[in-house]
């Protein structure tokens, strides 16, 4: 099963490698990992997307909690939550493809944020499947480059991850 784990961690050098080292040392999967400081600069928030059986996920959260610099861990995918990912994609946009590309971007509510004679850079946010769908909808031979941020997640409603 796919899980989205959010955690708060002291914003100290080396903290990221403790987390990534834990995953590699114990053979846990990382599908994506994002990290940035929170509104309190002494703390970072990390979102990790991982896959594993219930037992493995239980061990992952316990092991993460055990790291001295980790302040709090929640599996936000246990309840209603929102996931967002940002993708930037550079495509060839010439001739009839140029118009077609713009139309597809509009349908997905993507924004064209850089334009040259021959290319666009398109910005798209959404959950993973929306980004995948966009990639599926355009002619793959036109893709020059893509970059995805990995997932950020947050619980819906009253669920708050804070100290």
């Amino acid at each position: 099963m796919r899980h989205v784990i959010s955690l708060l961690i002291e914003n100290e050098s080396g903290a990221l490698s403790r987390v990534s080292g834990l995953f590699s040392a114990r053979g846990y999967n990382i599908e994506s990992l994002t990290v940035a400081p929170t509104e309190d600069a002494s703390m970072s928030r990390m979102t990790i997307v991982t896959v594993g059986s219930d037992e493995i996920i239980e061990q992952i959260t316990k092991q993460l909690n055990k790291l001295v610099e980790v302040v709090k861990v929640v599996d936000i995918s246990e309840a209603a939550h929102i996931e967002r990912e940002l993708m930037l994609i550079k495509v060839r946009a010439t001739g009839k493809d140029r118009e077609e590309m713009k139309r597809t971007a509009d349908i997905f509510r993507a924004r064209i944020i850089d334009v040259t004679d021959a290319s666009y850079v398109i910005e798209l946010t959404g959950n993973q499947s929306k980004l995948d769908a966009f990639l599926g909808a355009i002619d793959s031979s036109l893709i020059l480059e893509t970059v995805r941020s990995g997932i950020c997640g947050i619980g819906r409603g009253d669920r708050v991850l804070k100290i």
Binding site: S13, G14, S17, R18, G21, A25, V68, E69
Partner: peptide
């Protein structure tokens, strides 16, 4: 040293 010992300490500091 902090990197080498990271997986075999409870915690370490530089």
């Amino acid at each position: 040293t902090v990197g080498i010992t990271r997986p075999c300490v409870k915690h370490n500091f530089l």
